[in-house]
Design a protein around this nucleic acid. Structure first.
Lengths: 137, 137
DNA sequence: TTGTAAATAGGAACGATTACGATTTTTAGA
DNA sequence: TCTAAAAATCGTAATCGTTCCTATTTACAA
């Protein structure tokens, strides 16, 4: 998912493409990893002075609902990143910089064998640690 | 981990075994699954009328630090359960009742191969859905 | 039994997020 | 291009889970 794809999705669904909506997408396009709302607020305040929480959270939710952003809960704070791709995968997440690396392994095939009478709705597999850059910094 | 084990750990480490500490352990011993602080507060208020947040959260953290409780973040709320066992495993978590089922599969063996230059500190693998009881209720 | 360190009470404060009425902006259609 | 309706944003208050603070109470070792 890139900036242009996201704008296309927005228009297709009949949402308005406002300056702030584009700013938010540009922010995530320029970042490479999961970011909390806080970082986005700081970023937009540089340009606008102030920014309404409503604008931030409404659009984060909208983008998430539209599949433009992915979300994860890190220590009680929601973090977002541009949806990265098409095929199913998981993430390594750097605890220092938030950058991610895709993990191709998915344990659900073998795990679901242990859950024959259960209804599986969702799963989460994330690995946390330090990326090579942060390790040598 | 059961009630008696937990009290033994408390005493060994020099912590006092107060009535409320026992109540909290009994609560988790009687429950079978992840519970939020809220549920514990409701439970203790039945007995005491009021209960200090401080008492709740201080003891949840203490038990977690001592390995008596396990913790997971579910939608921005921390949930706790008695530590269940010795060997490494993951959980299916029922979204309706919070009950858990141990999953023996762990994807880290194969996943770490994809992360040779990364420092792995932690990982999370959880499956969410409905348990057989909630499915047929 | 008693001294004291630990635990609890009660409530204020905090950080992330949600909610809301008023105002502004986007955009479709005249 | 102009305009009206719908949608988006603003500024701020409220909410929710959690943490923090000081005074008071309690467990337990001596």
């Amino acid at each position: 998912m890139n900036l242009q794809d996201a704008i296309t999705v927005l228009k297709e669904k009949g949402y308005k493409t406002t300056g702030k909506r584009k700013d938010i997408l540009e922010f995530f396009a320029s970042e490479d990893g999961y970011r909390p709302a806080k970082d986005l607020i700081v970023h937009l305040e540089k340009k606008y002075g102030t920014i309404s929480f409503d604008t931030i959270y409404r659009n984060l939710h909208l983008y998430y609902d539209l599949g433009i952003l992915e979300k994860t809960d890190l220590e009680g704070e929601k973090h977002f990143r541009l949806s990265c791709s098409h095929h199913h995968h998981h993430h390594f997440i750097c605890k220092d910089c938030g950058k991610t690396k895709e993990i191709e392994v998915c344990p659900m095939d073998s795990a679901s064998a242990e859950l024959s009478n259960y209804e599986i709705e969702d799963h989460k597999f994330e690995i946390y640690g330090k990326c090579p850059e942060c390790l040598h910094a």
